[in-house]
Design a protein around this nucleic acid. Structure first.
Lengths: 247, 247
DNA sequence: CGTGCTCTGTACGGAACCGTACCAAGATCG
DNA sequence: CGATCTTGGTACGGTTCCGTACAGAGCACG
């Protein structure tokens, strides 16, 4: 943790969308969490005891099926928070959904009671949280159409771009196997798509590590879903701030 | 409209989940709406002036893409309401989503201001509405996995079963073309799947009209998504009531 | 330094589905 | 009752992706 300069930024777009005075008001209720890769934050149907506001971590919301591995329905990074169901009045996850750390990194943590009490006061916090839940809704919605209509290569590109926006770096850890599970496709299909993207000079990867080389080129290959989501987040949460060294 | 017997049911599971006294309290704010097939209730990004509680109508929530026809992300019938974004604090639809009547029928209508004012009081209404929004979330989430993993025939069956639960009858109007758009597949693919289902003696159809003959057989063909959604709705809203003649 | 494990590259047949197209049967409407 | 439109049946080549399998390449650890 850091000395809390007045109104200092958190490095999380949702929290930083608050006026400085509101930031200082909730700061005492936050501490820092740091989880390793693939750490499960909430089990299916499990209790939501804490909410998390990622800084440079990325978390997946997954849905489980009886015969297949879990499929990703949305990702949460520095633009949002993990545990949105509390906003809908629930203290638990849906029966078949879980949250899992995708890319390790830092997150701000707040326990559910604190969150609920801050939320119950009518203030900017409630407002920005509600807008985030709308954005999360939009993300899942887009994923429905994307999975129905777009190719593996398009979806891979979309996924990489979204992740890129959420971790602060061009390189992040990811295996083909893992990405395949997120997209609900074969590992070999991801290998093929990734090879094509590397061939085209858009990415580079070696054994569990992915680097985006040509970001704009990747946007051209990705389906429109990426831009749609980015624009919707910007509309609801305001454009991303340049990363002020904080936290 | 009907003479309002005290505590009378509405024929909508969400409204009927309220205690009779609460039902009577909101009854004056409701009137009956009846829209034809394919009528658009909200345009993409458009204002939500009224919310609707279907009785025997079915409404689709669709997401639009620039190059393809709109794809269905969820359906709303007598288990829920149309206009859930108001609960999230918005007065408009997301930029790329719309709501369209799927199967014509009756719906209860409430204007947004009335809804918001009823909602702001802490009471059973707020509670049941929040649970419905959770169920809607679950439905869209399931659709993500379903579109990624399941065949056209499985998805057709799921769609028919969900619709069957929502209209009060075994027969309802639907064309192959329309169903294909909802699922994001070719019209010919639906024709093939429907022919197979008819061949198996599960359904019958003739020119824009579909009848489910063997409901349990259809459940066996459908993917697990149908049962998952039905169970989640029952969990959050209570089991469906036998249809009391009302409204 | 060798062993074992994880991750990636690649192959092959097959299934599902696509884009497109054309025709026939039912409905509608003058 | 004939013209026209909508809906459904069918076909065909092509593409994408699947299921499965195996081998090599990088890394970790004893």
């Amino acid at each position: 943790m850091t000395p809390s300069r007045i109104g200092a930024a958190f490095g999380n777009r949702l929290l930083d969308a608050l006026p400085p005075s509101d930031r200082d008001r909730i700061r005492p209720k936050l501490d820092v969490a740091d989880f390793g890769m693939k750490r499960v934050l909430y089990e299916p149907g499990g209790r939501i005891d804490s909410l998390y506001f990622p800084v440079d971590a990325v978390v997946s919301i997954l849905t489980t099926l009886s015969d297949d591995p879990a499929v990703e329905v949305a990702t949460v990074g520095n633009e949002g928070m993990v545990g949105s169901h509390v906003v809908l009045g629930s203290e638990t996850m849906p029966v078949r959904e879980l949250c899992q750390v995708q890319v390790p990194g830092r997150m701000w943590r707040m326990d559910r009671e604190s969150f609920a009490s801050v939320l119950s006061e009518a203030d900017p916090f409630r407002d920005v949280v509600q807008r985030y839940v709308q954005a999360l809704f939009a993300q899942i919605t887009q994923q429905v159409a994307c999975n129905a209509l777009h190719s593996v290569e398009e979806r891979c590109s979309r996924w990489l771009l979204l992740t890129l926006d959420r971790v602060g770096a061009d390189t992040f850890p990811i295996t083909h196997e893992f990405l395949a599970q997120m997209l609900g496709v074969r590992r070999a299909s991801v290998t093929l798509a990734a090879a094509a993207l590397q061939q085209a000079g858009l990415i580079e990867y070696r054994r569990g590590s992915m680097t985006v080389v040509d970001r704009e080129g990747l946007e051209d290959v990705a389906c429109e879903c990426y831009r749609v989501l980015r624009d919707e987040f910007d509309r609801l949460l305001g454009p991303p701030q340049p990363p002020t060294a904080s936290a």
